[in-house]
Design a protein around this nucleic acid. Structure first.
Lengths: 271, 271
DNA sequence: CTTGACTCTCCCCTCGGGGGAGACTCCATC
DNA sequence: GATGGAGTCTCCCCCGAGGGGAGAGTCAAG
């Protein structure tokens, strides 16, 4: 019979852990002195402790181990649980690799820029939206403002309320200086009266969007787009839909273009 | 200005997290109503939140991020921290792969045996020991008992106390049925008088031993050895020293051989 | 005025123990 | 027999990044 310290040294399991296993009923000492409370362990409890340590190391929680080792060790249960953990660990390993890749990409960016990246990129999702849509091909980017006025004017005149910030979708697959195919869109509540150019439409949910945020006048937006696309490429994603621009703070809310805030999103998928 | 819920939806960061970041000083709302305590966030706080989320995702803790983002973002600090995290993550990834390998080996064992493995194996270390050593080549395994008597008898007659269980080292590289080269060893306290066959010796510390525990008579020990060597091979270790047997409960402590407890150890290194 | 959706603070919970306080207990020595 | 040091006991708080929920206050629409 060993006292807890000696048993702890023998098995290389800390005293704290042994007391916890006792408390959880995982490994109850052969004998506990009624008077002093001192625990005594027998050498033949070592295999059980060994098994606990091994299963814990394989990724099972103490609760799971306790449930599996109450009476006879439950072979089928352990099998099932280990397969499950195997799947989880495979996933975690893939996540870990992806994260390591992101760290490397970030470090490479720091190295190249010599400064913090101007645009941080995250992956988000977007819910489906019921929107009023106005699509047109405009000669130049600033013409968007005219479209915007048209759309908001119409909805405002019909007393429809916006349920979120307006956004634009760029349907051109590539960047172009002129004749830009733009869909301007705003989520709203109510019923849309008929209109020649403005239609109701359901914007589908997007499960995976690479997003970044641009502050300042719209002339700087293309830098943000460049940074976003660079990130997408550097992190092994593939673009799978039209770019979005979300006008969180625009001319209607801020006088000063330096205060504009625009979120850029591009739908992506893995690989 | 957005209230916390809207800001939370916009950034896809939970309200709980936003409140935590406020508390940590990571992201303090632009305005807090003195009366109601309601938080108001400005759209131009989104980039900072974005950066927090990105750095967190790269594996930095909130404390680290807070330290790095108080004033100017500290490029050098982030660089150093990320390199450090990169090293850690590389290690964790390797650990994860090794663990996945162990899970697979365990599952394969379950599959083959159709039952729990008879011997669980863990990796331990052993401290350096000052021991009395008696080495000899004996015709058969049971002759060890005679050696054991010789060693213990000598130490006992000199009133030397054992400071741990006795152990045997098997110096034959391979298993053999007869003429076994055995070193019997026992840690003790005191000064060893001279003896023709028994010498003091320092058993060096072993950083990495594969260990398992055998219960029952010594005739079953070779099965345990077989299981241990199988595990070593299946888990990609290489044997790098003589086997050890530690007699935790032997004939001197238990009448019944079924109650014997013996630990088997073999020094290993990676690959 | 009421109702339902938001928001606030505060407290407890996670998981596997680590660290430490204060009180006993054991063993060996003086 | 006293004492000192090492070992052990229970109990409580701590970790990280929030999640869950209670109880109370707030806001906007009908």
């Amino acid at each position: 019979m060993f006292r807890i310290g000696e048993f702890s040294r023998l098995a290389q399991v800390t005293v704290k852990a042994l007391r916890l296993y006792d408390e959880l009923g995982l490994l109850v000492p052969t004998h506990v002195d009624r008077h002093t409370g001192y625990r005594s362990y027998a050498a033949d409890q070592l295999p059980r402790l060994q098994r606990i340590v091994v299963l814990k190391d394989l990724g099972l929680s103490l609760q799971e181990i306790a449930a599996l080792m109450v009476d006879e060790p439950d072979v089928d249960g352990i099998n099932a649980l280990l397969r499950q953990r195997h799947a989880e660990m495979t996933r975690e390993l893939a996540d870990g690799r992806a994260r390591l890749g992101r760290v490397e990409a970030y470090l490479a960016g720091l190295q190249k820029e010599g400064d913090m990246p101007a645009y941080d990129v995250t992956i988000k999702s977007a819910p489906a939206l019921r929107v009023a849509s106005l699509r047109d091909t405009v000669p130049h980017y600033p013409d968007i403002e005219r479209l915007f006025g048209e759309l908001c004017g119409f909805l405002g005149s019909r007393r429809l309320t916006f349920t979120g910030p307006p956004l634009a979708l760029y349907h051109d697959g590539e960047y172009r200086e002129q004749d830009v195919d733009i869909e301007l869109v705003v989520p709203f509540a109510g019923t849309l009266p008929p209109h020649a150019r403005i239609r109701e439409r359901a914007l589908p949910a997007e499960p995976s969007l690479a997003c970044t945020i641009h502050r300042g006048p719209y002339e700087g937006l293309h830098q943000a787009h460049t940074a976003l696309l660079g990130w997408v490429e550097a992190n092994g994603y593939r673009i799978c839909g039209p770019d979005r621009e979300i006008y969180l703070v625009g001319p209607e809310a801020a006088r000063n273009p330096a205060a504009y805030v625009t979120e850029l999103q591009v739908p992506v998928s893995r690989e």
